[in-house]
Amino acid sequence: MTSLHEFYYRLPARAGGFRPGSHLGTSLGHGQEFAAHMRLLDNPDPRRLDLRASLRNLRREWLVRVHRQRVSVPVHAVVDVSASMRFGARASKLHVAADFLEGLGHSAFRAGDPVGMLAFDAVERTDLFVPARHSRGAGYAMSAMLREFASAGASARAGGAEGLSQAAQRLADRQGLIFLVSDFHWALEVLDGILDMLAQAYVVPMITWDPAEAEPPPGNALLAVRDAESGRQRTLWVRKTLRAQWRDAVAARRARLDALFLARGLRPIHLHGAFEAEAVSRYFLEAVA
């Protein structure tokens, strides 16, 4: 992983905390952003004495400058590792997620944020849990775990909101930044309740699809397909009508996901077959603009 995979991210709103970092904070302390003047008696720090403001003060009191400090926030990636995430024409969606995790670890270390990982399929995968930590190698460790899991060949289980709900309970009512990495090929009815649990955090949905599932194959031919989640197999005659239905179904699913997240003020990032650091940087630059 090179520095080309590092991406920019900042929270668009102020965050609480006292550990110095890169995000706009709500706490007062050492920083560059001026917040207010206070009496020297209330904040006895003569190093921040403001002589001009003190001379203009009608009460003739010594005033000191008080600043807001920038803070670090915990960053978590909640990754779907269900059977459908093993699909991919060139690289599986799990490998795309692993590329993202490697870039996330590098970027979080540069920003001064602790970073961790949670995973789920039908249930929470505690074997893939990595607590948030501030470490140069955190991204490499998380990425390696995910790649090893993807290539292990173990029986994959179907995904579901129940597994996501169990993982989300670890982060319920916590502030921070959460990347939700999934193809969302499961029932979405209970996703609202899960997002309620994560309402204190800034959630970034990352919809991970492979081009081979979003675009039907060209030409008329028989196509053997297998549902990655249920394992059911069937044979389709690919023709013009089926290709149109395929594209319509993909567009409808994408529109439903976008509408579900936008209703909560969340704008998803779409990953199509590869992780692009520049696209993630552009997403956050637009959010804080």
Rank of each mutant, 00 (worst) to 15 (best):
L222K: 11
R157A: 10
M142P: 10
L198V: 06
L195I: 00
L198F: 08
A168D: 06
T208H: 08
R147Y: 08
G153I: 04
E124I: 00
W209I: 01
A187M: 11
F120H: 03
V115G: 11
M145C: 04
G163K: 00
V130W: 09
S165D: 09
W186D: 05
S182W: 01
V204Y: 00
I178F: 07
A224E: 13
L191R: 03
H185E: 14
H185D: 14
P131L: 07
A158K: 07
Q166E: 13
Y202S: 11
D127E: 10
F149Y: 15
P114N: 11
A158T: 08
A154T: 12
L222R: 15
A138Y: 09
D192C: 05
Q175T: 15
I178P: 06
Q200W: 15
V181N: 04
D192I: 00
P218F: 05
F120E: 01
A187E: 13
A161E: 09
P211N: 08
I207V: 15
A187N: 15
Q166S: 05
G116V: 04
F184Y: 02
M197R: 15
R147S: 09
Q169K: 12
P211R: 06
I207Y: 02
M145A: 05
A154K: 14
I194H: 00
S151L: 13
N220K: 14
M145D: 06
T126V: 13
A144I: 07
A132T: 08
A224W: 11
D183S: 01
D113Y: 03
G176N: 09
Q175M: 11
S165P: 06
F149I: 01
I207T: 02
S135A: 15
R174M: 05
E162V: 06
T208K: 05
Q200V: 14
F120Y: 05
L195W: 00
M145N: 07
A212V: 13
A201Q: 11
A168I: 00
D113A: 03
D183H: 02
D121M: 03
F129I: 07
L191I: 02
A214V: 13
P211E: 06
A167P: 12
A201F: 06
A122M: 10
P216W: 01
V190H: 14
A168W: 02
E189T: 10
E148N: 12
G153L: 04
I207P: 02
E148H: 12
I207Q: 02
D192Q: 10
G160H: 00
H134Q: 13
M145V: 03
G176T: 06
L222W: 15
P216R: 01
R170G: 03
A201C: 09
P218M: 04
V123K: 15
T208A: 10
F184P: 04
A224Q: 12
P211Q: 06
W209P: 03
A187F: 09
A119P: 13
A156V: 07
G153P: 07
A144G: 11
A212N: 12
F129N: 12
A168M: 01
D173A: 10
A150K: 10
V225Q: 08
L164H: 03
Q200H: 13
L195V: 02
R147V: 07
A214P: 08
V190N: 13
Q166W: 00
L198R: 09
D113K: 01
E215K: 12
A199W: 09
I178Y: 02
V115R: 10
D113N: 05
P217S: 09
F129D: 09
A187I: 07
D210Y: 01
E215F: 12
L180M: 05
D183V: 01
Q169R: 10
R170P: 06
A132P: 08
E162I: 02
